[in-house]
């Protein structure tokens, strides 16, 4: 599998060495069963296998309740899969770690810490000295457009600003993989667009591997190199679509691009048709 990013016209070409490296994330026949209060167990994920390359921007797209967030939590190490394994760089994921940084829809900022304190938290956990951690955090806040808000508390910020802080907090400890769980789902349309653009800018600069969960076809096509379509309950991989669009992408240009439109329409059509699995049920 080749990520579309490597074919892009972006000034930052990735080094060829990383192409031959093993997949960054490997999900191998993962199933997840949740015990519910009633006697029946709920099969949330069924037999998922996926490989995600270093530096790829991969979206997991599906209707709500298809277990796509669960899949992300398994990669994060927050949830242990009932069956199968998830590996990072060939090593089985046993728990959370700073090599995989989550960004949640609910922001999950520490309310008792200032904006700066939130961003510094991970660096301080890694043992970085306070002065150095502060300098790095201030630079990051500047990058996400929050210069001057360092001493605000999360409650004083708008939703979009909170999510920028959450992104900065995660980027601060330099995770190799970003795990984004519907990060823009709670934002209004305008803020969402701006954050998508900013996320792409940041991503195009340092090309971290991103696993991005969303239920918006638009968002998935606009951001990703690869879109993993999932089925509803139990969640299965229905199809993987490579998005072959040039980078850097600008939303206003892309909206007029027939290739982009075709991807969106095709994916939406596929979701409209019942797939074999669903028919079989």
């Amino acid at each position: 599998m080749t990520a579309a990013g490597s074919r892009s016209e972006a000034p930052l070409e990735r080094t060829p060495a990383s192409k031959s490296a093993p997949a960054m994330i490997e999900i191998d026949r993962v199933s997840q069963v949740f015990r519910t209060s009633s006697r029946k167990d709920h099969l949330a994920l069924s037999d998922i296998s996926l490989a995600i390359e270093d530096g790829a921007f991969v979206s997991i797209l599906g209707p709500s309740g298809c277990g796509k967030s669960t899949l992300l939590y398994i990669v994060g190490g927050f949830v242990q899969p009932t069956m199968g394994t998830a590996k990072m760089k060939g090593k089985t994921i046993a728990g959370p770690g700073p090599d995989r940084g989550p960004v949640f829809q609910e922001f999950a900022l520490f309310p008792w810490k200032s904006v700066l304190g939130n961003v510094m938290y991970g660096l301080r956990q890694q043992g970085v000295r306070p002065a150095e951690a502060e300098a790095q955090s201030r630079a990051l806040l500047d990058m996400v457009g929050l210069k001057g808000f360092e001493h605000f508390y999360p409650k004083e910020l708008s939703g979009g600003m909170k999510q920028r802080v959450a992104l900065a907090r995660t980027l601060a400890y330099h995770p190799e993989v970003l795990l984004m769980d519907e990060p823009f789902g709670a934002l209004d349309a305008h803020t969402r667009t701006r954050l998508q653009n900013d996320l792409l800018k940041i991503w195009e600069r340092d090309r971290k591997t991103v696993l991005f969960v969303t239920h918006s076809v638009d968002e998935a096509v606009f951001l990703s190199d690869k879109v993993v379509m999932m089925t509803r309950s139990p969640g299965r991989v229905r199809q993987v679509v490579d998005i072959d669009l040039p980078r850097p992408r600008r939303r206003t240009e892309l909206l007029l691009d027939p290739r982009y439109q075709k991807y969106v329409v095709n994916i939406e059509r596929m979701f409209d048709e019942p797939d074999e699995d669903e028919l079989r049920c």
Binding site: F104, A108, Y121, R169, T170
Partner: peptide, 26 residues
């Protein structure tokens, strides 16, 4: 909130410290 705890764990907080670094202040 579970995700507060997850965020701290991902940032490298050892499980033993979660109680004092996240649960107590939260």
């Amino acid at each position: 909130e579970q995700k507060l705890i997850w965020s701290a764990m991902a940032a490298g907080t050892p499980p033993r410290q979660i109680l004092f670094k996240v649960v107590l202040p939260a």
